[in-house]
């Protein structure tokens, strides 16, 4: 059923007439043209589609449009502020925390939410927090490093 859905997307108020049970992932990628959010499994297993909803990491392939009504969504495209990369993005670059890069947006946003809940995580907490985000290229070691570096440079978020 089509419904008018109003939400905040990367800082901007957005209104859409969409079928309210369509998944956020596809609305972002097609209707809104924000292709930084990736499809990897469609079932909530891989985390490639991770976005922030009211600051929490959520899997957009499992999120219906109705669930984001009046809420705040941030995608990878919304992390850069006035041309400045977010410290996590910088740390992923500087620490080569990516190979093919396909899992990267989901990794960064998942880490973002994790750090906002726990600005100074131990290595084990990072591992636990990232456990359900999959990377096939095997960039894990450097992703952990990047998150540690970002946490430090953000000095407690």
């Amino acid at each position: 059923m089509k419904e008018r859905i109003k939400f905040t997307l990367n800082g901007k108020t957005t209104e859409l007439d969409v079928d309210s049970d369509r998944k956020l992932l596809w609305v972002l990628r097609t209707d809104l043209g924000l292709t930084g959010t990736k499809y990897g499994c469609g079932e909530g297993f891989c985390g490639a589609c991770t976005v922030l909803i009211d600051g929490e990491a959520e899997r957009s392939c499992q999120t219906s449009m109705i669930e984001i009504k009046n809420r705040t969504v941030v995608t990878i495209e919304g992390l850069e502020k006035d041309g400045d990369l977010h410290p996590l993005q910088k740390a992923f670059m500087d620490n080569d925390a990516l190979q093919c890069g396909y899992c990267t947006p989901g990794m960064i946003l998942n880490a973002y939410a994790m750090l906002s809940n726990n600005p100074d995580p131990t290595e084990q907490q990072i591992i636990d927090g990232m456990e359900d985000n999959l990377c096939r290229c095997g960039a894990h070691k450097r992703i952990i490093k990047a998150i540690q570096v970002a946490a430090k440079s953000m000095g407690g978020f």
């Binding site: 990736k38 995608t75 990878i76 993005q89 080569d96």
Partner: peptide
């Protein structure tokens, strides 16, 4: 050297086949 394609990949700008519209 750091990867030449890193910036595109951390900002979500890197285009994969599914991103071609």
């Amino acid at each position: 050297y750091l990867r030449q394609d890193a910036r595109e990949k951390v900002t979500g700008k890197a285009k994969y086949a599914g991103d071609v519209r």
